[in-house]
């Protein structure tokens, strides 16, 4: 999808999340092909006194699909949710280290989480369309972001086409979203996410509640979306990570000396390398099925 008239086009000027000056003047950290959109430096996420995951340092590259894999409880979803401050909604959750978005610390005091989520959208594990019509699901984000001026019908069509759902729903836009199949619901959730034109889409195991055919459609869609969006996907399905992603981060959970479980990032590299020639023994054990 292209939005030639989009004033928010971020290829030239990094978006501002706060009223203050961004940490780096435009151009200093931006514009190069290799400049990460999101960069994590020694990130740890805490729930109260419990450190759920630690030691996460990795970049998220523009227009690429970055996968996070690992066994249950390794903190991959927790890290994903720290990228658009969804963890704010959980009482007692906090992040240490630096999560930067175009050079701006997402957890700086003057950052507005609403603005963060405008630019970094999210698709969830279980399809969660609103109990409204298909049309209203797509326009919801437009309305709350005051983007529904004028050509709303066009924007809805664009978003649904972008999510490869238009042909299936164009004749029943006013019917309930809950009447759709699980795979269609998930594509609707992708449509309502791209309707507000984020730069980054976070996907938290988006296919775990879907059958293989619906999963295949979503994976095809992800390839298309990567042309316009930067995608981070958490998946417990290693084949899926191998199929769709450019780069892969492998997380695992380990007991510390006191016997407490913490998740941590083990290895981050090009997906090809992770799956054929991992540097770490734990990664190799996991992808060859000896663990997890």
């Amino acid at each position: 999808m292209t939005y030639p008239e989009d004033p928010m086009d971020t290829t030239i000027v990094p978006p501002r999340l706060s009223a203050g000056l961004s940490l780096h003047p435009s151009g200093a950290t931006h514009g190069g092909e290799n400049t990460p959109v999101i960069d994590l430096a020694d990130v740890a996420v805490w729930y109260g006194d419990y450190q759920a995951v630690r030691g996460v340092s990795m970049p998220v590259a523009r227009n690429q699909i970055t996968a996070m894999i690992g066994p249950s409880g390794c903190g991959k979803s927790t890290v994903l949710r720290s990228l658009n401050r969804m963890n704010d909604l959980i009482g007692g959750a906090r992040v240490t280290g630096v999560v930067s978005y175009h050079g701006q610390d997402l957890y700086a005091r003057d950052v507005d989480p609403i603005e963060v989520r405008r630019r970094i959208g999210m698709v969830f594990q279980k399809p969660n369309p609103f109990p409204k019509s298909i049309y209203d699901n797509v326009t919801y984000g437009l309305k709350v972001n005051k983007m529904d001026t004028g050509r709303t019908d066009d924007l809805v069509e664009q978003a649904l086409r972008g999510a490869a759902l238009w042909d299936e729903v164009k004749d029943k836009l006013k019917t309930s979203a809950l009447a759709l199949s699980g795979g269609q619901q998930q594509r609707l959730c992708i449509a309502r996410t791209i309707a507000v034109r984020p730069e980054v889409i976070l996907m938290d195991e988006p296919c775990s509640a879907l059958d293989p055919i619906a999963t295949g459609k979503i994976e095809d869609l992800m390839h298309e979306l990567a042309a316009s969006y930067t995608i981070v996907i958490v998946t417990h399905n290693m084949q899926q990570a191998a199929r769709v992603s450019h780069r892969t981060a492998f997380f695992t959970a380990e007991l510390d000396d006191a016997g407490v479980r913490h998740g941590r990032l083990v290895e981050f590299n090009d997906t090809g390398r992770i799956f054929t020639n991992p540097a770490d023994k734990r990664t190799e054990d996991y992808i060859t099925g000896r663990f997890g």
Partner: peptide
């Protein structure tokens, strides 16, 4: 969560 993720 779906609504918050859409910048509500």
């Amino acid at each position: 969560e779906g609504a918050y993720a859409l910048a509500s």
